[in-house]
């Protein structure tokens, strides 16, 4: 119940247009960076760079456009739960892929 009360009592955080414009500009710059990086010959690292930039952009969107930076701890935990599950899926699957060939050379 205390949670319910604070939820209703909470003032909605107002984000200034300046921040939104700044974030939008950063996202556009990152998009340009992704395009530029695709012209470099990095072998398998091309994908890594592209994904790295994409993750950075997604983080900005979640934090600012989706207001998670200003939300309650419960909201942050909810986002973290999704991230944690995803990391479990990728991380634990990798435990198979990196070690599958061990001992066979």
């Amino acid at each position: 119940m205390s949670e319910l009360e604070t939820h209703h009592g909470e003032e909605p955080h107002i984000v200034s247009p300046k921040i939104y414009v700044l974030i939008a500009a950063t996202l556009l710059i990152c998009t340009a960076l992704t395009v530029a990086a695709s012209y470099l010959e990095l072998g398998p690292w091309n994908a890594v760079v592209a994904l790295g930039i994409a993750v950075f952009k997604a983080t900005l969107v979640v934090l600012f456009f989706m207001h998670i930076k200003y939300s309650s701890k419960l909201m942050k935990l909810t986002v973290f739960a999704g991230l944690f599950t995803f990391l479990a899926l990728v991380g634990m699957s990798m435990s198979d892929y990196i070690s599958r060939a061990w001992g066979s050379f």
């Binding site: 599950t85 479990a88 634990m92 198979d96 990196i98 599958r100 061990w102 001992g103």
Partner: peptide, 22 residues
């Protein structure tokens, strides 16, 4: 529950080491 799924796949050709972990 999210950390045990590979026990359905022990004989499917997954890594022996990861089998041990799971």
């Amino acid at each position: 529950g999210f950390f045990v799924w590979e026990h359905h796949m022990f004989i499917m050709g997954v890594s022996n080491y990861s089998t041990l972990v799971f």
